[in-house]
Design a binder for these strands. Structure first.
Lengths: 303, 303
DNA sequence: CCACATCCATGCCGTCAGGTTATAGGTGCA
DNA sequence: TGCACCTATAACCTGACGGCATGGATGTGG
């Protein structure tokens, strides 16, 4: 009996949400489409999976049996897929490197150069991730190693090493009243509207909104962006301000955007991360060593 | 990344066969269709799975990684499906009983009656299997318990119990020269054309062609059938002869077909089988007990 | 040396499954 | 009674998948 894994994901969504309507919006499909798909799944398997009612969709006994095991199956499939992709990289002598926009900034080219020197014949395939993906694709197995900003969601399941630390500054529209100050106190920024990362990024978003430093004070979100260009535009257009690593002042300079140091806010750490499965992979470990040796530069950026 | 399991089966087939053409005929699709599907799988996964050449399709490194794990995934999925179906039966108080045509014959109604008495509220859903399916659907998880002829392929992975034994007779066209004999020696039948079960049934087919008793003597196949009606027609029409349990003489009497005892051939056993997972299932075990208690009848059929 | 066999790839076309929007059909609630 | 929630159905469009016919490359045998 053949099924598309998409159908299984649909099923899981309905089982978890309890109603077609809610599951449909979570899956970004229309409710009639889901109705048809679920119905088709039931006829294909020859098993009634839900009992319908005005209150929603309740799992039947066989439905429960299925709902118990399907998520595991999907996870297995994703894992197999990860393995195949990583095998592809290894075979082609390509190290897939994910990096978050604004992660290592100036350090990145140094690291890559060093890697090329240490591993002739290998190529580093650099993939810039959006901010909706704070692990830069590592959690999804899309890359072998990632340069990113710590802490980030899911880092407990991965290996990480900190390369260097740099202060967090604030990016303001140039016309902003505080843009002329040499040093801004965090307290003066608390009630400003902020340009934030997308919600999918979880508490990584909160970290860059400095939620920890606010003592419960609510945040005003002026705009949501997931890449530097949009982010710069949003700030220049006055939708809000945002914290950024100090190096962004050099790396993402743009007319209309002014960077200023901030006091009263913790610094940001740049890290390299990899999967525990690659602890013994010589290429991945070489890359990590390149990061550790050539990421931090004496006197640059360090806080 | 979503994929249809059908696509994965396609992939496995090509990986195993080594050429698109052969895999295509095994899958009963055209070769261009397979070409397109495999290509699509590769683009969907973003991984080159095969290297093409005039000699066929050879797995790449990532292809090998995939080919190693996908069969396990498919097996898992089939297993989950089995569980769900069996849960459906349990919830509806339906015991799914598979039976091979000509398995228990007269004993079947006795068993069912007894089961209905012992488990009021439960219903036995009887499903007759064709001879291409000697486990009567048990191996595929289509049924909870099966009445069948032993031995059968795959029985080692299942629980079985023998109900009774009966001699194997031979079914001949009524006009056959040997049809008048009271007892026929197996040696006299060796060179006759036989009506056989489909090849999918594996060595079960061989068992009913008495290959073991032939000492390497080849079999002549006159026709292939997978259900009693076709089987009777084939014999009556003179395409061949066939061995059959003695009870078939009563249960499958038909003009033009004559049954005669045979000497020099082992008897046939009727058994009940179930999955080890149901060793503790009270309903399945009740059914098995009904079989053991009411399957064999003193003085009937026993060899 | 020229058919021939055996691979895989491509183009064209018909069919059907999956998606969309709009709407119907229940049922609890203010 | 009208609204707010469900799910189901209808009509329609697009694209994926499969089939056939054919092309292109490459060894093989007469």
């Amino acid at each position: 009996m053949d099924v598309d894994t998409r159908l299984l994901r649909y099923f899981v969504a309905v089982a978890e949400e309890g109603t077609l309507t809610r599951a449909a919006e979570r899956l970004f499909v229309s409710q009639p489409a889901l109705t048809k798909q679920i119905k088709q799944l039931e006829t294909r398997l020859g098993v009634r999976l839900f009992t319908r009612s005005r209150t929603g969709m309740a799992l039947t006994e066989p439905g429960r049996a299925l709902a118990e095991r399907v998520p595991g199956l999907l996870a297995d499939w994703d894992q197999v897929l990860r393995e195949a992709k990583s095998a592809a990289g290894r075979a082609a002598r390509v190290l897939r490197v994910g990096f978050l926009a604004s992660a290592a900034n100036e350090a990145t080219p140094r690291i890559i150069t060093e890697f090329a020197r240490r591993r002739p014949g290998w190529r580093a395939d650099m993939r810039q991730a959006t901010w909706s993906n704070p692990s830069a694709g590592l959690a999804d197995g899309d890359v072998d190693v990632a340069l990113l900003r710590m802490p980030f969601p899911g880092q407990d399941a991965l290996r990480t090493a900190v390369l260097f630390t740099e202060p967090r500054w604030v990016a303001l529209p140039t016309g902003h009243p505080l843009a002329t100050c040499d040093l801004i106190a965090f307290d003066d920024l608390r009630d400003e509207p902020f340009v934030a990362a997308p919600p999918e990024s979880g508490w990584w978003r909160d970290h860059w909104l400095a939620v920890d430093e606010r003592d419960g004070h609510p945040v005003t979100i002026g705009a949501v962006t997931d890449q530097p260009d949009d982010w710069l535009s949003a700030i220049a257009n006055g939708y809000g301000i945002a914290f950024a690593p100090a190096s962004a002042a050099r790396f993402y300079a743009r007319p209309g955007v002014t960077y200023r140091p901030v006091s009263g806010i913790s610094p940001s750490r740049v890290g390299v991360a990899w999967s525990p499965a690659d602890d013994t992979d010589p290429v991945v470990q070489d890359f990590v060593r390149c990061c550790l040796d050539h990421g931090p530069r004496p006197g640059e950026n360090s806080a």
